[in-house]
């Protein structure tokens, strides 16, 4: 490179600076919008994923409760509803639910949250392996109700989350690994 052309150097720095800045802006969580305590529930009975969400919330020092088959009544005294999106046939079987019953439960929960003015944080922590026909139905139906979403990047390879979030103006935070969600969680909840 010809080091005697300062204008070009400045332009190059500006160019890469702009790219880095946009990347950071996309990854920087918005200011705190959620309040504690929060109720964590699964949407699709991938109960391991819901348990992970609870652990992440605890590591972010949030007051969280897990109810895998929570209903509207469980929203009493809660200020945020965390919907962990992901279908598991095994989980549905263990919970004694079928697909329709599970969707009905979530619909009722979301409606109650709306009625109580409780914002919804959607999470998808299963990655690419937790995508499939039923999970996608759940994402398509319930993600639009969220105020924000935190997901594993590997679960968004086809851009489904990006597409829905863009269309509904939902801030989307993508993380590489589950544990990377702790920091954004700390920032989006009021203390």
């Amino acid at each position: 490179m010809d080091m005697h052309r300062p204008a070009e150097i400045i332009l190059t720095i500006l160019f890469f600076g702009l790219i880095a800045g946009s990347y950071l802006a996309a990854q920087t969580p918005p200011p705190p919008v959620f309040e504690q305590p929060l109720l964590v529930t699964s949407a699709g009975q991938s109960s391991g994923d819901a348990q992970i969400a609870l652990q992440l919330a605890k590591r972010a020092a949030l007051a969280a409760t897990l109810s895998k088959t929570g209903t509207g009544k469980d929203l009493e005294n809660q200020k945020t509803l965390v919907l962990v999106l992901g279908a598991s046939m095994k989980g549905l079987g263990s919970a004694g639910l079928d697909t329709n019953k599970e969707k009905e439960r979530i619909r009722e929960l979301v409606a109650e949250a709306k009625k109580k003015n409780i914002p919804i944080l959607a999470m998808h922590l299963g990655g690419g392996q937790r995508r499939g026909e039923l999970t996608d139905e759940i994402i398509n139906e319930f993600l639009p109700a969220a105020k924000m979403a935190i997901i594993l990047k590997s679960g968004n390879q086809d851009g489904l989350f990006t597409k829905i979030c863009k269309a509904k103006d939902i801030p989307l935070i993508e993380v590489d690994k589950s544990l990377d969600a702790v920091e954004p969680l700390k920032k989006i909840f009021k203390r």
């Binding site: 991938s46 109960s47 391991g48 994923d49 348990q51 095994k90 299963g126 392996q129 937790r130």
Partner: peptide, 16 residues
Amino acid sequence: SPTFSQINKDEYEKLL
């Protein structure tokens, strides 16, 4: 592998 990871997540509660 993704298989290992998914099974690990599915059985998370029991392992904890």
